[in-house]
């Protein structure tokens, strides 16, 4: 019997598969905190794009607790639950003097990608 059959398609698509986890994890940051992204370069899976590594930004929102893809990709199960935040980076921080005027970037960041920035 195949795993994916016609009769379960509708339910699967409508149900979805959030990586949100019901876990008790204390957030390391809160909205308004200044952070700096870690400059890591793993050979394995990560959702931390190169262009935001080692950059200074500000937490704008805490979205709650999710499985950490960097370890889940390896283990094959939802693991290492941690908070995901929206982090705002100013254009000039990412692109220097070539940045567009009055432009910024928001991105989803896990606790493991972030360190507190000295203000």
């Amino acid at each position: 019997m195949p795993l994916l059959t016609r009769d379960i398609v509708g339910g699967l698509v409508a149900g979805g598969a959030s990586c949100r986890m019901d876990a008790d994890v204390v957030p390391k940051f809160k909205a308004g905190d200044k952070v700096v992204t870690r400059n890591i370069n793993p050979a394995s899976h990560t959702r931390l794009p190169r262009y935001v590594r080692g950059k200074r930004g500000t937490i704008t929102h805490d979205h709650g607790i999710f499985a950490f893809p960097d370890t889940s990709a390896d283990s094959g199960t939802h693991s290492d639950p941690q908070h995901v935040y929206s982090v705002r980076f100013e254009g000039e921080e990412l692109w220097g003097k070539d940045a567009n005027a009055n432009a910024c970037l928001y991105i989803d960041m896990f606790d493991s990608y972030l360190e507190p920035a000295e203000s």
């Binding site: 432009a103 928001y106 991105i107 989803d108 960041m109």
Partner: peptide
């Protein structure tokens, strides 16, 4: 005068 916000949906949202 209009701030451009780029949202990179790199992960969960």
């Amino acid at each position: 005068s209009v701030e451009i916000r780029v949202w990179d949906s790199n992960a969960e949202l």
